[in-house]
Amino acid sequence: MKRRLRNISESGASEGLSMKSIAILLLAGMSVFAQGQNAPKSALDKATLEAYLRYSELWIPQVAVKIDDPKPSAVSGFMDVAIHLTFNGATKDEMYYVSKDGKSIVKGTAYDIAKSPFQANLDQIKTDQQPSFGAAAWAPVTLVIFSDFQCPYCQKEAQELRKNIPAAFNDKVRVYFMDFPLTQIHAWAMKASIAGRCLYRSGQDAFWEYHDWAYQSQKEITPESFDTKLQDYAKQKGLDALQLGRCMDDKTAAADVEKAMAQGHALQVSATPTLFLNGRKLEGGVEWPILQQLLQIEIDHKAAEAKLAAAVPVPAKADDSCCTVDIPTLVGKKK
């Protein structure tokens, strides 16, 4: 009996020790959990930033969110964080500024008072090898339009620009065309853009004739009829239809379109037409009377800048005669 009692006592001691160990482990786990709960949140953590923005911006669960790595920002003390949203094939890009300590998020536009308010856009817009018309390449005003050949609003904007820019501002404004087909909603827009790039290889005139035809024929074109319509257009213009067909299948032309689209995404273009007037972003098309005023304002602004720059005196070359002692010699002063 005594031996049995001793075993029970030993067993109780063992159980007591085990319970004590479990209690210690539980307390340790709770402590770690509490530390995690109390740890400061950082917007530089992608999961934390996404959760915060989903709540603040009311993005629905079906919206896919991709967050780029933070990059150095022109805004002192902050990092640039680009965020890409996708929903049902549609994409949109947003830019946020996150403080280097991860405590603050800023959404908006930062300006450098010594530069154009639209310098960030100007730095990203690349117009080389893009179709253009109007004034010379060094014109004071540049109008860049991101457009979609299947977009009805783009059709209206294109017709107004083609008619009014040469008549009103032919020596002051140059217009550049950038492909931005909304492939998720426009079935033949990409094909139309590729065809435009193919014809651009033959020169500016070839592209703009096609551009005007495509918009004029927009209501008659369908995804099923585009190829036939294009071949008919080529025959009417005396173009090599076979060569055009080969170009359409060539990935180089498609790559040119995708390059323009990538530039649009970098500029956060999400609607067509989107215009950039010397870097100023104008979304969704602008009625000609309003655009005409905006163009004139920009022309006047550039003229005022040039006048101010001309009025700034050029620093005179330093004259050290006031501080140099000259002693005349028979051979004169050596230069």
Rank of each mutant, 00 (worst) to 15 (best):
D320T: 13
G108T: 07
G245Y: 01
L277G: 08
I125G: 10
T329G: 11
V32E: 11
V65Q: 06
F146L: 08
Y111K: 12
A241I: 07
Y176P: 04
G332S: 09
A136I: 01
E10A: 14
S225V: 10
A304Q: 13
F226S: 05
K172I: 02
V63T: 14
D256A: 12
V175D: 03
A47Y: 10
G77Y: 13
K103Q: 14
I185D: 09
V81Y: 05
D148Q: 01
Q37T: 09
Y176W: 03
A189V: 01
A310C: 03
A51F: 03
A135M: 03
P117H: 09
A120D: 10
A303R: 12
A23W: 04
A271W: 01
F177A: 09
I24T: 15
T252E: 12
L267F: 08
N121C: 11
W213S: 13
A43N: 15
S42L: 12
K259N: 11
I297P: 00
K251H: 05
I194M: 02
E287V: 00
D240H: 07
E15C: 09
L291V: 03
Y52N: 04
T274A: 10
R280I: 02
G108K: 04
L277F: 01
P313C: 07
Q292C: 01
G29H: 07
S225P: 03
F177E: 04
N88W: 01
K156N: 08
